[in-house]
Write a protein that binds this DNA or RNA. Structure first.
Length: 418
DNA sequence: TCTGGGGTCCTAGGACCC
DNA sequence: TCTGGGGTCCTAGGACCC
């Protein structure tokens, strides 16, 4: 048996922990640069605000209904996520953190009344974090996902339910839209609708051969999972990433190479930090940048350039240097760039590195000591305390006018109680 | 004026081998 | 005129997830 614990409207719920006055009111959280709505309270959903709606388009609804609006605050969400994970870890021998707001629990060997257990997990998360969590338990991950969505739909389930009996599963699948099934995306839905397949149940009634032919292996796995067969494995060991990307769109378009270079240096630094945190090295560094695709009054371009290092590296100087070279090679003047990023690939384990015959080992060792010193200073005194000259102020520029305080991660932002 | 960011897996098909 | 059979590796692009 697997459980899926899914935080309801997660970013909004995090904001409400410290703003209980917003309970029962419409609230949304926006993406980078206050671009789109990425989390919505139930009240905001009821007003017709959709996932990914651009803020400027929903502004009239927001103003008319007094919707509370927040810029995203990832230090807060990451910390609240960690607290929820801590609670979940007490309920299962193994936990797979699937995303910032979702985790699977492997309940092998746990012998309890699963329906009561699901409700208990949800209640304990709420008691200790003030985050509402929906917990679905079922024999496969795909069914557990459906069970957790059921909890969101029916408050009478008290945040938890267990879905197992054949007749129960059939009843639920018959009322479950096929487009909401985990693993069935927009493209497949198009095909399915043209075949008259509208519910998860309809999908299970297709023949296995037909499913394999039309939707290949992934679609067939989903089909089997809906039948209660476990075929999507449990992955509680965190594998190092095979590629690392840091990219942002800019609040104001960039038309000068010097300005873009500074952003790219900061993207490269962040990417290298992620690389070093997972103890990896990379050999390819790509830089890309493009113009605002929504503007028909300006010329459009997409540029990218890939640099291959002579040796795999996790060195800040090597990675930033390569990124800046790539940026210069890619650069084409006369365009207003809206978004850019740095992408690291051909990633391997730092411990597998083989010394090169042609490099100065002393220089490499000194360089590694420098990178390590930067990491140590960042963790002791805060990120960006020491940085490279080409990073400017060391910050990735973005617009976030409505960010809440970092209540749980900054002493200066801790709430005061009178 | 204003439109997010970061990943993985799978398959088809090309290039190459004998 | 007629153009084999079997395999590996790599990459681009599609599809999906949050």
């Amino acid at each position: 048996m697997y459980a899926l614990a899914d935080c309801n409207n997660f970013f909004v719920s995090c904001e409400r922990v410290f703003r209980p006055d917003l309970n029962g009111k419409p609230v949304i959280v926006l993406s980078n640069n206050d671009g789109c709505a990425v989390s919505r309270s139930n009240e905001a959903k009821a007003l017709g605000i959709k996932m990914g709606d651009p803020f400027f388009k929903i502004r009239p609804i927001v103003e008319r209904n007094g919707v509370a609006v927040f810029s995203s605050n990832f230090p807060l969400y990451g910390d609240m996520s960690r607290r929820v994970q801590e609670v979940l870890a007490e309920f299962a021998p193994a936990v797979e953190v699937y995303s910032i707001d979702e985790a699977f629990l492997d309940l092998s060997g746990v012998e309890v009344d699963f329906d009561a257990y699901a409700k208990k997990i949800s209640a304990e998360c709420w008691r200790r974090t003030s985050i509402p969590v929906s917990v679905g338990i079922a024999p496969s991950k795909t069914l557990a996902k459906i069970a957790s969505k059921l909890c969101k739909k029916y408050p009478a389930l008290h945040g938890g339910c267990y879905m197992y009996k054949k007749a129960d599963v059939e009843k639920v699948l018959r009322g479950f839209p096929v487009e909401d099934v985990w693993g069935i995306g927009r493209r497949s839905v198009k095909k399915l609708v043209s075949m008259g397949i509208r519910t998860a149940w309809d999908y299970t009634q297709l023949s296995p051969l037909q499913v394999q032919k039309m939707f290949h292996l992934p679609g067939y796995r989903t089909w089997r999972e809906l039948h209660g067969d476990t075929c999507i494995g449990f992955e509680d060991v965190i594998e190092p990433k095979q590629s690392i990307c840091v990219s942002r769109s800019f609040a104001h378009e960039i038309s000068a190479l010097a300005d873009l270079s500074q952003q790219v240096a900061n993207f490269a630094y962040s990417a290298a930090e992620k690389l070093r945190r997972q103890k990896s090295v990379c050999q390819e560094i790509a830089v890309f940048a493009f113009t605002n695709r929504f503007r028909d009054d300006a010329p459009q371009t997409f540029g990218s350039h890939l640099t291959v290092l002579p040796q795999p590296s996790d060195d800040y100087r090597a990675i930033i240097g390569a990124a800046l070279n790539a940026c210069q090679s890619m650069w084409r003047g006369g365009y207003a760039y809206k978004k850019a990023g740095v992408w690291l690939s051909r990633i391997g384990q730092a411990s597998d590195q083989v010394a090169s015959l042609f490099e100065d080992q002393d220089a490499l060792e000194r360089s590694e000591r420098l990178s390590r010193a930067l990491d140590d200073i960042s963790s002791a005194y805060g990120r960006g305390t020491v940085r490279f000259g080409n990073q400017g102020d060391g910050r990735i520029r973005s617009w976030s006018e409505r960010q809440s305080p970092h209540y749980t991660t900054l002493w200066s932002d801790i709430p005061k109680v009178r």
